[in-house]
């Protein structure tokens, strides 16, 4: 390695708390890709990091708030959306982004998700969906596919999985997209769209957990999971999110919702302005 190369800094280094690197995530974990795409989105939009707040919950991806070089809060299990709602309404000039996992946002925190979407609070939710509770060692969750093996479905999963984009769309989100961790460019574009859009925006990232999920479900390496994403993904932009399946043979990805609707914050400001003039 030449001296010049040794001095080279990664272009997204300024978005990271460098002293906390390397992150705790396993080799080939999709969480690092999500962090990477989020940094790229911030870079390409040239957003002032002083105005960004990253809120996370519990689980592997919950640690992401500690890695982003912005104001950040690692909340309790399931509550990042409720916390983010308070932060955004108290200081509307902030860009408040929740980045958390499928278990955190849709099992223990499911109620907050549907209500924040219904209210159309102007927050951005990025969900790393890895089909499993990784940090506790691989138990099944609300997105685990039927028949999958986890430590708490030793005879195969008999629960139906949530379709997160369908749930988000039905709950009232103004922007809904799903990509896999392999769709780095489209994922980055969707994060950028979400960041620029007014209202509750949701980006689901199908993310590989090779250590805890993949190797128990016939995908021994991170690369084999990424190959599954490559082979199974089918882009169906603005198709019916109710039909956006995830199965071994097919993962429907794309943008599903992109509509305009006044956010809670806007309606609140309008109400207050009206009161002041009365």
């Amino acid at each position: 390695m030449t001296k010049k190369q040794l001095e080279m800094k990664h272009p997204y280094e300024r978005f990271l708390r460098k002293e906390r690197m390397p992150h705790i995530w396993c080799e080939g974990c999709g969480n690092g890709i999500i962090l990477n795409c989020f940094a790229r989105a911030l870079d390409e939009l040239d957003i002032d990091l002083n105005n960004v707040v990253v809120v996370s919950g519990i689980g592997c991806i919950g640690r992401i708030s500690g890695y982003v070089n912005a104001d950040s809060f690692h909340t309790t299990h399931g509550r990042p959306i409720a916390f983010a709602t308070g932060a955004k309404l108290a200081k509307p000039e902030l860009k408040v982004v929740v980045i958390s996992g499928d278990g955190d946002l849709f099992a223990i925190g499911g109620n907050h998700f549907i209500h924040a979407a219904r209210r159309n609070v102007d927050i951005k939710v990025i969900c790393a969906n890895n089909f499993v509770y990784g940090m506790t060692g691989g138990q099944y969750g609300p997105t685990t596919p039927l028949e999958a093996w986890t430590t708490t479905t030793p005879y195969g999963n008999i629960e139906q999985a949530f379709n997160l984009v369908h749930l988000a769309a039905a709950s009232g989100a103004v922007y809904v997209a799903r990509w896999t961790a392999l769709h780095v460019r489209r994922l980055t574009e969707s994060i950028k769209k979400a960041l620029q859009k007014e209202g509750f925006s949701f980006v689901e990232v199908i993310s590989q957990c090779p250590e805890i999920y993949g190797r128990h479900n016939k995908m021994k390496t991170a690369i084999s999971m990424m190959k599954w994403f490559k082979e199974a993904s089918e882009v169906r932009n603005f198709s019916d999110p109710a039909k956006a399946d995830i199965s071994p043979s097919r993962i429907i990805v794309g943008e599903f919702v992109d509509v305009e609707k006044p956010s809670y914050g806007r309606l609140l400001r309008e109400m207050k302005a009206k009161l002041q003039t009365e």
């Binding site: 707040v53 809120v55 809060f73 909340t75 309790t76 399931g78 509550r79 409720a82 916390f83 983010a84 709602t85 308070g86 932060a87 955004k88 309404l89 108290a90 200081k91 902030l94 109620n111 907050h112 209500h115 609140l268 109400m271 207050k272 009161l275």
Partner: peptide, 28 residues
């Protein structure tokens, strides 16, 4: 709303206290 404040009725008490912490950390 008369004093430029925010009232929000959350979906439960879990959310209420979480939102309070969010607002307080935002300086309110």
């Amino acid at each position: 709303p008369q004093v430029s404040g925010v009232y929000i009725q959350m979906e439960d008490e879990l959310a209420s206290i979480a939102a309070v912490l969010g607002a307080s950390n935002a300086g309110t």
